[in-house]
Design a protein around this nucleic acid. Structure first.
Lengths: 196, 196
DNA sequence: TGCATTTCTTGAACAAGTTCAAGTTTTTTC
DNA sequence: GAAAAAACTTGAACTTGTTCAAGAAATGCA
């Protein structure tokens, strides 16, 4: 059993920012994790399927999106390195979901399968705490997001997003950024043309 | 020590929907809970203050809102019986927050203070799991909400909300409902006038 | 019960953002 | 390296929702 676990280092480091993890616990955890590399555009989850796992991004960038009635794609979430991305509605209900999760660039993820998650959490109860804290932050950010959507113009939100997450603006196609911010690519072009 | 704990029954029942709780654990939990009745319009939290607790609604209806630059109120969340309502951004960062939490009608809540929460969770680790599951659902619903905000018209969102939560529509002033749905009371009046 | 306050409604003028269409630029593919 | 595909830009016409203002209706309070 000579296994290289360097691919899990980022996840372990992330976990240790929230909880302490002994060597023993680390050893127990690793067999529950699966490493997977993704090609650009490869789907981790397709709309209409049941989401069966949590995904931690080791490298690259993913998006969670759904198809709208008029045939466009609505992106609700991006994920980059050291972030989790999961359709929690489908994961929770174990019903077919409304979202797809796709790699925007060549990526690598660590997968934690739902069907073994409870067993793992019984062995390492502290992970319940880790995920509680992660979800608490995600939820808090999501509520802030709703506030900004309602109270600030598209342009203001674009400017703020650019200031807060400059790495995204380089890395993600503009039309995807527009989708994530809730407006059309044409409008984003107009906003950007105003920059002078 | 002859204390009546019937005011906590709803919370205990809610917890037991997610985790099992022994009599022993119940006894350990109760001293960490505070019951509080609220007058209509009474604030639990004011914008600019640090949120120091989680709030479980036993009776009544609360709203979480912030003041906008132009002096209006933006409601991001309602809470009714058996729901938690908390400014998780401020609770997490322990910094002054952007939200106020206020009772819309005479209400009653159970308070779980942050400064004793970790001690409680060490005594009853299962509560980490309870809160993880609660937050997971809240976050999943919030992501769905963002999707609907972006992909459906204000009118569509109003009609869906009315169908999903008819009790709210009776109970909450129309202008608050409009705020929560992200449009003006004038527009809501126009939508409703179309109902024939 | 009467007055004050709050909530709801209405209509016209306005604006942020969309739709449609097409041209330009960049990236990808072979 | 050329062609195809994808992404970006632009402008005009359009639409969903806002602002402003004021009146009507409902609720709260003494």
């Amino acid at each position: 059993m000579n296994m290289d676990h360097t691919m899990f280092e980022n996840l372990l480091a992330h976990i240790k920012r929230y909880i302490s993890l002994s060597d023993e616990e680390e050893k127990k955890l690793l067999p529950y994790l699966t490493y997977k590399e993704l090609k650009k555009k490869e789907h981790v989850l397709k709309e209409g399927k049941v989401c069966t796992a949590n995904h931690f991004i080791i490298k690259g960038c993913l998006r969670m999106y759904s198809l709208t009635e008029n045939g466009t794609e609505q992106i609700v979430q991006f994920g980059i390195e050291n972030w989790w991305i999961t359709d929690y509605m489908s994961l929770d209900t174990q019903k077919p979901g409304q979202f797809s999760i796709q790699a925007i660039e060549p990526s690598a993820i660590v997968i934690l399968h739902k069907n073994t998650q409870d067993e793992l959490f019984r062995k390492i109860p502290k992970l319940e705490r880790y995920f509680r804290l992660v979800l608490q932050r995600a939820y808090a950010a999501s509520v802030m997001r709703v506030k900004y959507i309602f109270t600030e113009s598209g342009e203001e939100r674009f400017r703020q997003f650019t200031n807060s997450f400059p790495e995204f603006v380089q890395r993600v196609p503009q039309y995807m950024l527009a989708s994530y911010l809730g407006f059309t690519p044409e409008f984003l072009s107009k906003i950007r043309a105003k920059k002078n």
